Amino acid sequence: MMLQCSILLLFIVTIHGSVFQVPSPFLTLSSNNMTEGQSITLTCVVYPGSTQLPPLTWFWKCGNDNLTGNATTGLHNTALKIKADRKYNGETCFCKVRPSSANDSYSKMSNHVTINVKYAPKTIPFLNTTSTAVVAGEEITLQCTLDSMGNPQIRWTWKCGRYTVYNRRIVNMNATTKLILEADSNLNEKICHCVARSYQLNYEAASNSVSLTVYYFPDGYPEIDRSVFFVNKNTPVTLRCSLNSLGNPPVVWYWYCDNKPILRGIKNTNFGSSLTMIAQLSDHNTACHCRAKSESQWGSYDKNSSKALITIRTTGNTVTESAPIKAGVSKDVFGAVAGILVLVVIIAGVVIVFHHRRIVDMGTRLSTEKRENKNDTGGGQDNLNYSTLREESSHSKE
C-alpha cells in the first residue's frame, strides 16, 4: 500500500511539476580574498516569493569535490563552510537544489563563483648546478626550484656575494628560475643563492648556497714600484712587485738580482711580493726584478717585471767611487772600456819610449861634436883669420 502511494505521489509531481518547481538559488561568498587556512562560507538562498516550497535537498560542488555533507540547511537556504585551501584556488563552486521528493532532473543550479585563495610555497627554494668550477670565459648555470609559485606569485632574485645580480641572464619558468653567468675573475670564490619573496604573503626564503670557482690568469705584467733605489751602505732596502690579481691558482713569486736567484728576504702579500735586504757596498749598481709564474692544465703564465737599480751612496748625495762596478753594468760595455784603457796605456808607452830615444840620440851627437872641437889646434882658427886678412890687404893695394 505504501509503495503504491509513493508511486502515485511521484506521478503527481511528474505531471504537475510546475507547481513544485524550485526557483534557481543564488550563491554568495563570505570573502573571496582569503589566505590559506582561513574559513570560507558559501551561502545559497532561494527566494520562493508567494509560493510555498516543499522540503528541499541541496548539493555542493567545488572543483571536483562534492561537499554536500558539510553544509547546514535551513528552510530556504544552505551554508557551506570550507577551509581555504590552495587546491580550491581558481576553482569554480556552485550549489544545486531540488524538491526532496523529486529526482535530480528537477534540480536548479546556482550561479558559479571562482574562489581565490592566497597561499605561499610550502618549501624553501632548492639550488642545484651541474658544475661550480669553470675556466674564465665559460658559462655556468645555477637553477632554483620551488614546489609552487604561490598566489600571488612570488618574485625571484639572485645574489652572489653581497650584491644582487641584475646584469646577467635570468630565465624564469613556472616554479623554476635559472641564472646563467659568464665566468670571470670577479666571480671566483663568490657565494651565490636565490631568494623567493612575496610581501603580500609575508614570505621570504633563501635557497642553499654554492661557492663558485673560476680559474684564470692575471692580466698584464708584474710591476715593480720603483726603477731606482738610492740607499746608504748597511741600511735595509725593500723592493716590491704587484699584480692587479694573483690569478687562480695564485702565481708563485721569484726574485732575481743581476739575474741570480734570491732565496732570502722574500715576503708574499695578497697582491704581490717584496724583497728586503741590507745594502752593502758590493750591491752598488745591482739590477733586481721579480717574476710571477703559474701553470695549470689549461695553460700557463710566466712574466717578469722591469728592473730596479740599487745605487749605494756615501755621505750626502755623492755616490761612492771606490765601490766596484758589478754586473749591473753590461759586461760588453765594461770590456770595451777596459780595452780602450789598455790601448791608451800602450800608445802612451810607445810615445814615451820614442821620445826618450830621440833625447838620447841628440845628447850623443852633441857630445861627439864637442870632443871634435876640443881636438882642433888654435892655428886652425888663426889660418882662417890670416887668409882673410891677406885677401883684404891685396884688395886694398889694388
Rank of each mutant, 00 (worst) to 15 (best):
V135Q: 14
H112M: 04
N77S: 15
T78A: 15
Y119N: 07
K87P: 01
V135A: 15
M109H: 03
L127V: 11
S110N: 07
R86W: 00
S107R: 07
A120M: 14
A79R: 14
V117C: 12
A84E: 06
P125W: 04
I115S: 03
A79K: 12
T123N: 14
A120H: 08
Y119C: 11
S131V: 08
I115W: 01
I124F: 13
V113D: 02
T123I: 10
A84D: 08
R98G: 02
N77M: 09
T114E: 13
C95L: 05
S105W: 07
S107C: 13
S110C: 02
G90Y: 10
C95M: 04
E91L: 12
H76N: 14
G90Q: 11
N128E: 00
T92F: 08
S131H: 02
K83Y: 00
A84M: 11
N103C: 06
C93N: 10
D85F: 01
N103P: 04
T123V: 06
P121L: 07
E91C: 01
L127E: 04
R86D: 05
K118T: 04
R98K: 14
A120K: 15
F126K: 13
K83T: 15
C93I: 05
N116S: 08
S131K: 14
N111M: 03
K118V: 01
L80V: 13
V134F: 10
G74E: 13
A120N: 14
N116K: 14
P125S: 00
C95H: 03
D104Y: 06
R98I: 09
T78N: 14
K96F: 00
G74M: 09
S101M: 12
Y88D: 12
P125F: 04
V134M: 15
P99M: 04
V113N: 02
K81Y: 01
K118F: 03
T92A: 02
F94K: 02
T92P: 00
T78F: 06
P99N: 07
V117D: 12
V135N: 12
T114G: 06
P125K: 05
I115F: 02
D85P: 01
D85T: 09
F94C: 11
Y119A: 06
V117L: 04
K122C: 03
P121F: 08
T123A: 10
F126C: 08
R86Q: 09
T130K: 11
I82P: 07
K96A: 10
L80R: 10
K83D: 11
S110F: 01
V97N: 10
C93H: 05
Y119L: 12
S101D: 09
K87S: 14
P121Y: 04
V134C: 03
T123Y: 00
S110P: 00
K83F: 01
T92S: 05
L127T: 02
Y119T: 14
I82G: 10
K87R: 14
D104T: 13
I82K: 11
F94A: 08
V135D: 05
